[in-house]
Amino acid sequence: MRTVARPLVRPAQYVALACYIVFLGFPLLWLISASVKSSGELNSLTVSLLPSEWHWQNYSDALARQGLVRSAANSAVVALTSTALVILIAMPAAYVLARLKGAFRVAGVGWILVSQVFPVILIILPLFLILRTMNLTDSLVGLTLVHTTYTLPFALWMLQGYVAGIPTELEEAGSMDGASRLSVLRRIVFPLLAPGIVATAMFSFVSSWNEFFFALVLLQSPENYTLPITLTSFIGGEGKVALGPLAAGSFLAAIPSIVFFSIMQKKLTGGLMAGAVKG
């Protein structure tokens, strides 16, 4: 677009992008490769991307593993619900955090930082007791609330950053029209925040989808297990890892995330912005 003047820039950009993609994507490629190799081949010294013999049995082994599908469904419910909750309650609060200065802001920001630094292992016991009094241990509702709570600081922190990036003149223009604050928020601020909201939503989905420690400690019944918990059942004692089935299961588990990303990334574009400013 604006780089027409320099003919070499485009190819250089493509090369750079390709390097990034190789770096970021190669482990997945290797995972897929491992998922179609037999354990004999995985334990050999030959390095090859393609298997000498396609070993699809890893996939049937992975799917035969108790509850892989059910735990994927559990993960999806928990991740989607907590993402929706996070966005819903974080947006207004982030706005306040960004726009109102002073002691409250300092306290809010300070809290966010402290809550992220303090080791989770020291929080887990009190948290477990609190959830137990509310009868929310071994429950997906409890896990959803925990995931929501522990993603909130990040969501608030990021969203307030994006709010701070929105020129206040836009809002003021809205208020001059005599619109109420809430309607200014709804009509002007939130649409402008769209890319930030999408980024935050993706983060909160992923962190819930991949979250291991809270799920491990809080869930007890196998029918409540989430995906990461079920996947670790391929890792046995004494370092025995059923590598092939684990790779197959992980690849299957990665597909929903990738689909989710493909849908969400479309919303990460400037198109929304333009519309919002006009509206």
């Binding site: 994507g25 991949n210 990461p228 890792i235 890892v241």
Partner: peptide
């Protein structure tokens, strides 16, 4: 854009195991 998000699609348990394979001194890519 989706490819750039791949590291997100792998649960942490798997990430470490995959990278161990990649770094393997005598059988790693």
């Amino acid at each position: 854009r989706v490819l750039a998000l791949i590291p997100w699609a792998m649960p942490p348990v798997v990430v470490a195991i995959m990278w161990k394979m990649i770094y393997s001194p005598n059988a790693g890519p």
